[in-house]
C-alpha cells in the first residue's frame, strides 16, 4: 500500500496553541492514504479539522506527531508541487485578478509571453474575462473564489489541495466549475484532496470519500464512489442517490456529535 500511495498521512496529531486561551486538539491520530492521481473528497462537520489536515499536507503547519509523506518524502515546507486553494481565498488584495494569477507563474520563472497567455487562459476558464484589472475588493465572494482557483490551477501542481473551493458559488457556476475541474483532472491527472460540505458534490467528483469524525478529527470511514462515468445524468441514478444517502447519514451523525460536544 505504502508503495503506491502518493500521500501518506500516518498517525498525525495537531494541537493549536493560541497565545491566549487553552490549547485545542484539532486532529488526533489521523491516518489516511491517497493513491497517485486519485480524487479524494473530505467530508466532515464544521470544526473537525479538515482545513488543518490540508495545511499539514501543504507543509504550512509543523508536524508534531506522526508523519506525512508525499511521494515517499516527509513534508517539510510548502512548495509549488502542492497547490492550495484556501477556504478564505488568500488573494493578494493589492494585486488585480491578472496580477494574482500571474504571481505563481512569475515565481516559476515562466517567460513573460507564455505566462500572460497562460494566466489569460485560466481567467477565461473561470469566467472572469473582463475583470482582469479589478482588485479583489471590487469583486463578489464567488468571483474572488474563482480567482483563487485560477491562480492555483495555473501553476499546474501535481497535487491539488482544495478547501471548499466552490463554497461561495451559486449552483449554476458551481456546476460549470465542477465540469472544468474534472476536465483538468482528466487531461493532466493530479492527486486531488477536495474538502466540501456538499455530499452530492463529493460523490459526484471523487473516487473515494473520506468522512471525518467530530473534533478531534480522525477518519471515520472511507467510501468508494467510483462510477463508470461522470456524466451529469448519473446524479439521478439509483446507485448515486444511495451513496449520497449513506454518506449523508454518516456526516449527520458526526455533526450531531459535534453539536453535543460544544453544547455540553
Amino acid at each position: 500500500m505504502d508503495g503506491q500511495a502518493q500521500i501518506v498521512v500516518e498517525r498525525v496529531n495537531h494541537t493549536y496553541r493560541p497565545p491566549r486561551g487553552r490549547p485545542v486538539l484539532a486532529l488526533s491520530d489521523i491516518s489516511l492514504d491517497i493513491r497517485p492521481r486519485e480524487f479524494l473528497a473530505l467530508l466532515g462537520p464544521s470544526g473537525c479539522g479538515k482545513s488543518t489536515l490540508l495545511y499539514l499536507v501543504g507543509g504550512f503547519l509543523p508536524i508534531e506527531a506522526g508523519r506525512i509523506l508525499v511521494e515517499g518524502k516527509p513534508v517539510a515546507a510548502p512548495g509549488p508541487d502542492r497547490g492550495i486553494v484556501f477556504q478564505h481565498f488568500a488573494l493578494f488584495p493589492w494585486k488585480t485578478v491578472r496580477g494574482n494569477v500571474l504571481y505563481g507563474l512569475e515565481r516559476q520563472g515562466l517567460p513573460r509571453p507564455e505566462r500572460e497567455k497562460r494566466a489569460q487562459a485560466f481567467i477565461d476558464m473561470v469566467g472572469l474575462h473582463g475583470f482582469e484589472d479589478s482588485y479583489p475588493s471590487q469583486l463578489s465572494g464567488g468571483m474572488r473564489q474563482r480567482t483563487a482557483i485560477a491562480r492555483t490551477l495555473a501553476i499546474d501542481p501535481s497535487i491539488l489541495l482544495m478547501d471548499e473551493p466552490f463554497g461561495a458559488l451559486d449552483a449554476q457556476t458551481r456546476s460549470l466549475m465542477q465540469t472544468e475541474l474534472l476536465k483538468i483532472w482528466q487531461r493532466s491527472p493530479k492527486t486531488v484532496i477536495f474538502v466540501t460540505h456538499d455530499v452530492q458534490e463529493a460523490v459526484y467528483l471523487a473516487e473515494r470519500v473520506a468522512v471525518m469524525s467530530a473534533r478531534p478529527g480522525r477518519v471515520k470511514a472511507i467510501v468508494e464512489t467510483k462510477f463508470p462515468n461522470r456524466d451529469p445524468s448519473i446524479l439521478r441514478s439509483k446507485e448515486f442517490v444511495e451513496k449520497v444517502d449513506q454518506l449523508w447519514n454518516m456526516v449527520r451523525d458526526e455533526a450531531i456529535k459535534a453539536q453535543e460536544a460544544t453544547g455540553s
Binding site: P80, A90, F92, Y103, G104, R107
Partner: peptide, 29 residues
Amino acid sequence: SDHALLWSARSMGAGSFRMMWDVVLPSAL
C-alpha cells in the same frame, strides 16, 4: 500581515526575500 497570504506566496514558490517584498511590505503599506 495575514499569515494566509504568506503561506500563499510560499506555496507558489516565493523565498524569504520575495515574501518580504511581495507580501509583508504591501501589507504594511
